[in-house]
Design a protein around this nucleic acid. Structure first.
Lengths: 203, 203
DNA sequence: GTCTATAACGGGATAGAC
DNA sequence: GTCTATCCCGTTATAGAC
């Protein structure tokens, strides 16, 4: 077969695996299931990727890099602090609303790989605080915001953004929300989070 | 054999499985590995619990109930608001410092079970906001704190507490912290979180 | 009632021959 | 690109020991 057909087979494989990995969790998806749903021969998976693990890594890099770039650009931009925080929070939540399972996917990858996680280059685009931390220090030195621990502040920010998505079923159940209402709850967090972060740095 | 011996075998099984589930993740532990490490016959696992899944459920209930009670008591107590928040944050983090893998364990359980998660009764002791939400409403009505969304506030509070533990390896790597320093970073969050929460409700 | 030994089934992951 | 062999896994069953 020619190259374009080969690519379309490969793409079909990735697309199918991505869907299954996100919904069921990597460890609960079988390679046969992926192959069947993608309509290809099982061995083709071993032909394109060498193992299920490498298929996962390819998908992980792809998924993260797709989303992380715009976030990194916001964090590294020269926007004024409060505007930057607002833009980061709102953009991040918009991304996650579209793909609510991303958080669980990444967290399970971190837990599974532990120290090896650093080897996944995509992570560097996701958690990269150098310029943001510098900006926070500068603002604090100038007395424009309260003196805070910059790294703690960043961790707090992403905690407020990301964690609720990983317990979405729990929140929905506890507040008796259907899918639509649960989504609304998460969207409303944009304002909640922004205000909480700002209140903690303003005099 | 007598009851105590039976219990000790059962306990050994639970203890071993708990350790492995926490470190490697439920889906990456084999029943044969558990049996071997516990020094018992594989058939015994099926004798005491009927399946790996039921062994998991037993351990899940045990682990959560062990820790959740004291947290629920704080949340349902009649402490003044700021003192309650302080006590909740500090106690929760103390618990997690001792068992940093608990967060990943629970999150993966939520993700795996999705809607079925509600069936795990232990969850009700972990996320139960009725009296806390009522207290927040009361304080807001009395004009003693800013008007806020109580459910959002609770979700923010647990996000700030829990999420950093689930990305501990990432935080450690990014800030070049060894185990001791990473632990210190998490301990220091007690004060950070408390201050952020209070700043967001005080006038 | 508690425990061991052993085997077998269906399915999954992967390597290598073709 | 495909087929096959091999090995690991969770589960079930059987037969028997203390």
């Amino acid at each position: 077969m020619d190259a374009s057909a080969a690519n379309s087979t490969r793409d079909k494989l990735i697309e199918t695996a991505k869907e299954l990995f996100l919904t069921k969790g990597v460890d609960r998806v079988g390679v046969r299931e992926i192959a069947t749903k993608a309509g290809i021969n099982l061995s083709l998976m071993n032909y394109y990727f060498r193992s299920k693990e490498m298929l996962f890594e390819a998908i992980f890099e792809m998924l993260i890099n797709e989303k992380a770039l715009v976030l990194k650009q916001i964090l590294d931009s020269d926007k004024p602090l409060e505007e930057k925080i607002r833009s980061y929070v709102y953009t991040y939540i918009d991304i996650l609303i579209e793909d609510p399972l991303l958080v669980s996917f990444v967290l399970s990858a971190i837990h599974r790989n532990n120290e090896k996680i650093v080897n996944l280059k995509a992570i560097y685009n996701l958690y990269n605080t150098d310029s943001f931390v510098a900006q926070l220090k500068r603002e604090a030195d100038l007395g424009r915001i309260k003196p805070i621990e910059p790294e703690q502040f960043y961790v707090s920010m992403i905690s407020l953004i990301l964690f609720p998505f990983s317990i979405k079923p729990l929140i929905a159940d506890r507040n008796r929300l259907d899918e639509r209402a649960a989504k609304l709850f998460l969207v409303e967090r944009k304002k909640t989070i922004y205000e909480m972060l700002i209140a903690s740095i303003r005099f």
